[in-house]
Amino acid sequence: MTKTFWIGIIIVLIVSVMGVCYQKYLSTHHCAYDGCAVTAIYEVDIVLKDSSVKKFCSIYCATQWFKKNIQLVDHVIVTDEIRGKKIDSYMAYFVVSDLITNKTNNNRIHAFQQRQHAQTHAKKFNGSTVDDPFEIDE
């Protein structure tokens, strides 16, 4: 074992620790409800009346927060699971299926921009369409 070998190993260890630190503290947004990292494909943004935005890791977390803070909410933006596009929740189709998006909260609700995609998903994963969980009564 040469000196270079051990220097290399130390460098690799430093790189991996830096990678973890970056991942943990710098890179991702954290869910405003349970603190999990927010994945772009399942992201839900709740826009408040003061124009600030709360980011959530799943529809489950967003609905839990939404129920308690409905009076602060202006509108909700969900992500289409097929194309990754952000759309207003009232335009989206929601499906509850066997496919879990987040193991920590067992979220089974999925959002789609197109009805056809929602139906295909429901067929494939034994699901059914549900109403918009972010409906705001005027």
């Binding site: 690799v12 790189v15 991996s16 830096m18 990678g19 970056y22 991942q23 890179s27």
Partner: peptide, 9 residues
Amino acid sequence: GIVPDAPVI
């Protein structure tokens, strides 16, 4: 880039 050093691994 979720795991920044994944390509190195």
